[in-house]
């Protein structure tokens, strides 16, 4: 598979603070990769470096094999970035915002008008055709913001927390739209704090910490790195006894504020768990499958590694 983007050993610091630290990532053509990590871990800086808005201290960024700094206008037009913050001309109407950027990308008058109409429809903006962008609500501004980002049908799209400030309905709509772009073959790199979003939209997920990648892979592949098949969330008045018993069973545990998470070696029923925790006084017990959130907490959360148990 050909790489759409290769980030090789990129370093970047601001004011003596290392933001990106030997960051490397390869994204193949047509892939959707999610970047997950805590606030301040360098996700936005990375996107800005890739978009050539911020110069790197060291390393290489290649788009279709060419250094990003040397891209000519035609290649540069294939790359689009949708920043975290909505960036629109507030005094212009939605269609005028779209049209302005269409012309900047060199779309012909006819193509611009066709594309604007298409995006107004795709993002359901027709109902706000006569409302100036600055008067749209946050969610509708975000729709328009993303619509502007894809005005030139970019081959490679970077989205910085695209659904961070929208309501549930708008989020689902945007997920559908981003999923549509992915299905049409657009290569996408997106940052997000929504693990469900990453799980739903991304072929691969890269987990970031301290400016570098700590793990990268398909969500299912990342889940397989955890020592368990499912999680039991347990509360007990005898937390110490619970943890002692779980360890005796070989079940790795994590103690949270109000509950203990047990990483189970298989998908067990509540009855099987209660029987296994023989004699421990349980206040509540529920089970769920492993999620990306568990992977995130284990790999990015800076916790000591869980003991791996022998899987049945």
């Amino acid at each position: 598979m050909t790489a759409a983007l290769e980030v090789i050993g990129v370093h970047k610091s601001f004011g003596g603070r290392q933001i990106l630290n030997d960051f490397s990532l390869r994204i193949d053509i047509g892939e959707t990769v999610g970047l997950l990590g805590p606030n301040g871990c360098g996700k936005t800086t990375l996107l800005n470096v890739i978009a050539n808005l911020v110069s790197k201290d060291k390393g290489q960024v290649l788009f279709m094999g060419q250094p990003i700094e040397n891209l000519g206008k035609p290649m540069r037009s294939l790359v689009a970035v949708c920043s975290q913050r909505s960036s629109l001309y507030p005094e212009l109407l939605p269609a005028e915002n779209l049209l302005f950027f269409a012309r900047l990308y060199g779309l012909s008058e006819k193509e611009s008008e066709r594309r604007v109409a298409e995006l107004m429809s795709d993002f359901e903006l027709e109902g706000f055709a006569t409302t100036r962008a600055g008067r749209l609500s946050g969610g509708w501004q975000q729709r328009l913001h993303i619509a502007v980002s894809v005005i030139n049908r970019p081959a490679f799209l970077m989205l910085d927390e695209p659904t961070a400030a929208v309501d549930v309905e708008a989020r689902l709509d945007l997920w559908n739209f981003i999923g549509g772009l992915r299905d049409q073959g657009t290569t996408i790199l997106m940052t997000t704090h929504h693990l469900t979003e990453a799980d739903r939209l991304c072929n691969r997920v890269a987990l970031m910490r301290d400016g570098g990648v700590v793990a990268v892979g398909h969500p299912a592949e990342l889940l397989s790195r955890l020592p368990g098949k499912s999680v039991a969330q347990v509360t007990s008045v005898d937390t110490d006894g619970l943890i002692k018993r779980a360890r005796a069973l070989g079940w790795p545990t994590r103690q949270g504020m109000n509950e203990v998470r047990l990483f189970l070696p298989a998908v067990l029923s509540l009855r099987e768990i209660i029987d296994a925790l023989d004699g421990v006084n349980l206040s509540s017990l529920s089970t769920r499958p492993l999620t990306l959130e568990d992977v995130y907490l284990e790999l990015v959360g800076g916790l000591a590694p869980l003991e791996r148990v022998a899987l049945k």
């Binding site: 540069r76 037009s77 920043s83 960036s87 900047l104 502007v148």
Partner: peptide
């Protein structure tokens, strides 16, 4: 302030 400068510089402009 409105972030359009950044967007402008990601276009071929």
């Amino acid at each position: 302030e409105r972030g359009t400068l950044q967007r402008l510089f990601t276009t071929p402009l």
